[in-house]
Design a protein around this nucleic acid. Sequence first.
RNA 1: GUGGUUGUAGCUCAGUUGGUUAGAGCGCCUGAUUGUGGUUCAGGAGGUCGUCGGUUCGAGACCGAUCUUCCACCCCA
Length: 456
Amino acid sequence: MAQKPSIPKGTRDFSPSEVAKRNYIFSTIRSQFETYGFQPIETPSFENSETLMGKYGDEGDRLIFKILNSGDYLKKVDEAAYQTKDSTKLAVDISEKALRYDLTVPFARYVVQHQNEIEFPFKRYQMQPVWRADRPQKGRFREFYQCDADVVGSDSLWQEVEFVQLYDAVFTALSLEGVTIKINNRKILSGIAEVIGASDKLIDFTVALDKLDKIGEEKVKEEMIGKGISHEGIEKLQPLFSLSGDFGAQISQLQDILSTSEEGKKGIEELQFIEKAIAELGLKTAQLQLDVTLARGLNYYTGAIFEVVAPKGVQMGSIGGGGRYDDLTGIFGLKNMSGVGISFGLDRIYLVLEELGLFPETVTKTLDVLFINFGTDEALYAMKAIKALREQGIHSELYPDTAKMGKQMKHADKRGLPYVVLVGEKEMEQQTFTLKHMKSGEQVSLTLTELIAKFK
RNA sequence: GUGGUUGUAGCUCAGUUGGUUAGAGCGCCUGAUUGUGGUUCAGGAGGUCGUCGGUUCGAGACCGAUCUUCCACCCCA
């Protein structure tokens, strides 16, 4: 065997049926986005390095794909960095561009760059691939699609309420019932950190807290101690570990913990506003759940934090996430522009729908009817009918070669086509078409008008 | 970036302590059936065992490197 060609790890080819299923998810999401008043934009697949670098933390910088400069890229290299093999420093010299890492930062760049053309509040959606130089594993790829909807230029909490509804609407439309929309608030996390005297260690504290589900209370405490959080502080956290009950019950327990923190109280108010509104408006199939251990995107989220997890029993990380960022555009020089948004992980949603068998059968339908080719004269007769069918929007085609009938039938069978049409001498004489239903094997003789009517 | 794991026919996988010509099921092709696919029967094609190197009289099996798969950590959709 000659050397087989291959694709880079973490990337995938998509077959026709996979593309059909992916498009089904795309169009479902798109349709809900538009129903909620979002407008599409697109941004380049690569940005200037300085637009992306430093926006996702050190870990993020490591995972950004950098594009090597064209031409004699070693010429401009800093001699000292070259001699000492300082990769980080060298990277800046040999790479001025990088592949998009998510859609939020390019969006912030877009808003700042086009601020004078945009009417605020601006609601945009974007569905494009992003790239991460991560090590692949289940549901983690190096190239994958995000579907984002964001609003900039509005502080209103009604936006958060709408995003919860939007999540519910999309997953309901995809028949993916029972997803949990987890919600938290950065202000609550800050408040807790403040109460335990660890305001300066907010990130370390929340990263540890986030693992509560996974590694348990003891390990979380160990990690916090390891990060320099005092025993006293952890003592005060105790009620947090045993937080229980519904939304309201958890809130009242939080109120006790956060009674001395202004910021914490503000976070509670915000959560209560959202919860009340959602309780009043109702959700179709999703569930809104308070999760104080939820800590994502802390590099820029300032208010609400969202994460969507697949229904119980499906082993998949989050299938969506989002939150409020009061000052995202600030990093590009535009102050006081609050944003909030959510993201859908298309590739993971695909895996979940596949696992649960939730793709509608019609999604992969390609052709309504195949005409069997009996020879030149018959083919021309068939093509006239096909022309008429296509004008009516009926998906139809002629088997291109005059192969043996068995082979042609087999081809139709393999493609899973519902119907074939047989036209030989007999049919041509009578100006009819023999329509065969593949599943039942039944055959009927029809005129062209009747044939068209059959598929309309 | 760290640790582990996987790779044999198109697909799913066997292959004994290293020993002739590497197997099975499914799929594929041909015919029985030149106006009928999915069932059946008969026959057939297809593998330098991921790649490169090493140990050995002899390697699919042992060793090393590399690529790939999947998993855990980090982080994350």
